[in-house]
Design a protein around this nucleic acid. Structure first.
Lengths: 230, 230
DNA sequence: TTGCATTTCAAACACTTGTATGAAACTATC
DNA sequence: GATAGTTTCATACAAGTGTTTGAAATGCAA
């Protein structure tokens, strides 16, 4: 197996280039030039371009999913098999948001690659994403335990909206910064996570226990409607 | 100007093919074959492939934006220059959701094209979307009038989340149907619109006046917001 | 009908793409 | 050091891409 040098050089170069310039703009020739390896090496080590992309995505994706499930498990164990809904939503959106946002992650190739994978939608990645359903069902199960008696459709919608906010924030962080002229701080990951979790919980519970002590509440937290500031 | 026959045949064929098979899979040769015109006609009438795509997208996009602004204007006039936040969010997400979802729209090429444009992200379309900021600012202005005194960042986040839910629902309607095993009815557009609006308003107001009489409330609707823990 | 501009057409152009080939260079085992 | 297996390499391949060309057809006014 030699030293895997070529193989990992290709993976690293590909991830970097795809992250920076997108899938549509990067050819195998760009990748092998960046990696200082021969063109044929890609097909030798990965079989095809699509399998290379798939391997890149699967690697990062598995890591995130593992993190999610770990947080979910921890929360359920802490609650004796029934986690508070806030913790479940946090386990769902936290890893992704933390992984892709934040100033420390600016330079992370992995993060930028996953953002790219979220924006563009290339066939090999789409195929993998479609198999992610099982993973999400585990969250539905946890939500069912946390909010017993609730209609299943409500849970699905809640999960769906949570993912919507999380993914859309990652995908459109550039545009939101521009639109808000910097007033939305996309670097304050903790605040963003709290915000997404808060709204997700509100969506599920109808506005009741949405608030926990946290960085920046969505609006007037405990008070009456019109009194808000900051 | 002859009869525009060729030009519009190309537009129609292109929209249909892109809608069905995506931008990545459709070549100019596919389009001209479908339209029964000569290959060179595309460059003659549109200049380039990208300009053809841009024209397709701009046409549909302008229509939606016009609809949005009409609804917004109507709501503000009805309220004497200050529309209720529910109406504003409805004007924001209603046209898009109604345009892309629903059983009657299954066969609509325009709808399927816009869904495709939302899923794939091809350069000419991305360029246009980036100019959409001005349009969104009008909604921010209306929101500012509706919720005076509120921090601007909160308004931006609210708008952002509303678009997140709306777009993600369109983009992932297939997957949500599959995940929920049909329990989420993606054909009941009215209910979906109400749902998105309700959550958007909750996100902006912290969960208080989120409910108006409507199809399917998210969960426990009118519950006075209670102090919560964790 | 003549003349001129617009539109269509078949064909070719220029280039890029991912992939395959087969020989050469390695590496490790005996 | 010979051998077998792996890895690298330059090169070619085959196919597909958007675009251009220049002539032919068409439409329309004078």
């Amino acid at each position: 197996m030699a030293s895997d040098h070529t193989r990992s050089a290709i993976l690293a170069a590909a991830e970097r280039l795809y992250a920076d310039r997108g899938f549509g703009d990067v050819t195998l020739r760009d990748i092998v030039a960046e990696a200082n390896v021969n063109l044929a090496a890609v097909n030798y080590h990965f079989g095809s371009k699509d399998e290379l992309i798939a391997e890149l995505f699967v690697t990062r994706s598995l890591a995130t999913n593992r993190e999610r499930l770990n947080e979910l498990k921890a929360a359920e164990e802490k609650g004796g098999g029934r986690a508070p809904i806030e913790a479940i939503m946090l386990a769902l959106v936290g890893p992704t948001l933390r992984g892709c946002l934040g100033p420390d992650r600016e330079g992370s190739t992995a993060a930028r690659f996953m953002i790219r994978a979220s924006i563009e939608s290339v066939p090999p990645i789409r195929r993998i994403k479609n198999r992610e359903v099982d993973h999400l069902r585990k969250f539905i199960a946890a939500m069912r335990r946390s909010l017993p008696g609730r209609d299943d459709a409500e849970l699905y919608w809640g999960l769906h909206f949570a993912l919507a906010m999380s993914h859309h924030t990652i995908r459109e962080k550039e545009r939101l910064t521009k639109l808000s002229e910097g007033q939305c701080d996309l670097n304050d990951v903790t605040a963003i996570v709290d915000r997404v979790v808060a709204v997700s919980v509100m969506a599920l519970t109808g506005g009741e226990p949405a608030r926990k002590a946290q960085a920046r509440p969505m609006a007037a937290p405990y008070g009456r409607l019109t009194r808000q500031d900051l």
